[in-house]
């Protein structure tokens, strides 16, 4: 409860000061933010009108399916950024999340191929994922290493362990759970799409619907104030890294189902995960990361690739546009922060 009040007060005083001193700048920020959202909307509108088949239910479900893995990973990243603060150099970040997914996928697929059932294999994957998350927490909270460096080191540990386990090869896997994820469907929506829907609903409820979530924002936004209010900052920050590891493990099971195997190169996803978490801030009024914003940006990234393909625009453009959008959002975010800190 105290966190709620603290958070609300902090927000109120922010606004009071902002309206007093830099209303103009604030207005400019708002315009830029709405401009960015308008750009997103314009791109979507263009696809709706010109990309053949873009709005068909079948296509949209495809995109949700294609976004499931990225979405689950991006939630992990977002929780770390919420709990550790969104300062790009010193705030929370989990660079190991994609490599962790690769490791979990390798563990899961290897155990399945050795004949262990789904239950044990899933349990092992989730344990490994959370253990890697705990390692991050230990490095960041326990040893006080900058998250950027700590998780970079853990990235290498996880990637190295994956290589050791798989010898850089493709490990094929099949199981009842995987078969269900691949071909199951309910109300015309595939199991993989449901996985994203259910996971999204759960994590949005936890982060945005509970006192726990509010405290997490307090810890990330104002650690000193949170500590003064009696919150255990190390606990909350550690929690986000372990949650991130959990997300990596869940994503790994979805990956293995989609690729029928664990394959090398999961680390490649990191950039998209970061993009999704960063782009998501544009959907929040105060440029803070939110789960809903992350979901929107994950879907946006998915729709972008999909729309380009339907328009028969070279896939090479997708990366460029994605990069340009990240640059835009980071620029806007720094601009907005600048207006806050200059007060």
């Amino acid at each position: 409860m105290s966190a709620t009040i603290l958070h609300a007060e902090a927000g109120a005083s922010d606004e009071a000061r902002a309206t007093g001193k830099s209303a103009g700048r604030r207005f400019a920020t708002l315009v830029v933010r709405l401009g960015a959202i308008a750009a997103f909307a314009a791109i979507m509108a263009y696809f709706v009108v010109f990309a053949p088949g873009f709005t068909s239910t079948f296509n949209l479900i495809n995109v949700v399916e294609q976004s499931a893995i990225l979405g689950v990973l991006a939630y992990g990243m977002t929780s770390v950024i919420i709990g550790g603060g969104s300062d790009v150099t010193e705030g929370g970040i989990d660079l190991s999340i994609a490599a962790n997914m690769g490791l979990c996928a390798a563990v899961y697929a290897t155990l399945l191929s050795m004949g262990y059932g789904d239950f044990l294999s899933v349990l092992a994957a989730i344990t490994v994922g959370m253990a890697v998350g705990a390692l991050n927490a230990l490095a960041v909270v326990g040893l006080g290493i900058l998250p950027l460096l700590a998780t970079l080191a853990v990235l290498n540990v996880a990637a190295g362990m994956e290589l050791t386990l798989t010898q850089n090869t493709v490990v094929g896997a099949s199981s009842p759970l995987l078969a269900f994820l691949v071909s199951g469907s309910f109300l015309g929506i595939s199991a993989l799409a449901w996985a994203l829907i259910v996971f999204s609903a759960t994590i949005i409820a936890i982060i945005h619907g509970t006192a726990f979530g509010l405290r997490l924002y307090a810890v990330g936004g104002h650690p000193e104030a949170a500590r003064a209010a009696g919150l255990s900052v190390p606990f909350y920050v550690s929690f986000t890294y372990v949650l991130s590891g959990f997300c990596a493990a869940v994503a790994s099971i979805l990956t293995v189902s989609r690729l029928s195997a664990s394959t090398p190169g999961s680390g490649e996803l990191l950039l998209s995960v970061l993009a999704a978490a960063l782009l998501g801030t544009v959907f929040s009024r105060r440029f803070v990361p939110t789960m809903g914003g992350t979901l929107l940006s994950v879907l946006f990234i998915g729709l972008l690739a999909n729309g380009f393909q339907l328009l028969n625009v070279s896939s090479y453009w997708v990366n460029g546009v994605q990069g340009a959008l990240i640059l835009l959002v980071v620029a806007i975010t720094s601009f907005a922060r600048g207006s806050e800190s200059s007060r």
């Binding site: 296509n59 495809n62 294609q66 896939s315």
Partner: peptide, 24 residues
Amino acid sequence: EVIALDAGRKDQQQIAQLQTLIAQ
């Protein structure tokens, strides 16, 4: 007419491209 898709050595991307391609 060609719909040319290069997955950039990413399995995930190739699968997504094939999935959309089937819908096309």
